[in-house]
Design a protein around this nucleic acid. Structure first.
Lengths: 138, 138
DNA sequence: TTGCGTGCAAAGGTTTTGCATGGCA
DNA sequence: TGCCATGCAAAACCTTTGCACGCAA
């Protein structure tokens, strides 16, 4: 029973994310951006829409830094993310898409030895990307 | 400098974690457990001690689920032991702890081939656990 | 005595919820 | 018209901080 109406706010929020696929935004970013578009959207509305978009698979939520606002990023419903993994840099927020046979072996191993079936599309590996690590070592 | 006193509260908190190495506790868990030991410890005190223990390397902090309390686990002073990964079942919510050499290879591989340094303490692999999968197939 | 440790309450931040109103179909 | 969406404020939530008092050395 997926009853829902199309509203200006919902359209605007989706467009902000969609037009910047690959970038991430906090809830406040979205509020700020929607104001720039000439339409003020309430905080609760933003969170409620983000929640729907996440459940529909169009948007993904990341915790870049604990205690800080969560980040949201458009990943698209059609853009199949089943066969690859996501690496999220805790430092710069960069999201890397990694397709690698080795990671498929990981799934097999965990399935075989631990009885756990990993869902790559829901899993994000957190860490530090190459650029940030090299920058820190300066 | 590292000035510090030994106090009943600090000792109790450390013991609770140490005597259950490998298990997770939230800050509230620790407060509850310390009450069971006959000593009520304030919330602020618990957080302050956890912060010290984390900085000393004895305790590790995990963010299992966003929006929920962080989890704390005794890992000892030696950093030598294996990385420890978390598998979270999307269906029943069960959190599995997996210490496995294979997963260390994963980190090495991704570091070597993709230049990305995974932080196991921030990473949770999502999927379906054995019990839930078997229950679904019935 | 010195100064860190403690605990309470209040503050800080993000996210959720209640409720009356507004807008889509 | 029926019902979902909206927005404001308040609540819920975890965590940190301020301050007076307690306690270890």
């Amino acid at each position: 029973m997926e009853n829902s109406y199309n509203t200006k706010q919902g359209e605007l929020i989706l467009n902000i994310l969609k037009n910047a696929a690959g970038e991430h935004f906090t809830a406040d970013d979205i509020i700020r951006l929607s104001e720039q578009e000439g339409r003020k959207v309430g905080k609760a509305t933003v969170y409620r829409h983000l929640d729907k978009l996440i459940r529909s698979g169009k948007v993904r939520k990341y915790i870049v830094e604990e205690g800080m606002s969560a980040c949201f990023e458009y990943v698209g419903a059609s853009h199949s993310c089943h066969s690859h993994y996501h690496l999220k840099c805790s430092s710069c927020g960069e999201l890397l898409h990694v397709k690698c046979d080795f990671l498929d072996e990981v799934s097999s191993h965990i399935f075989g030895h631990h009885g756990f079936e990993i869902k790559p599309e829901k899993t994000v590996l957190y860490g530090i990307c190459k650029n940030c690590r090299e920058a820190e070592n300066v």
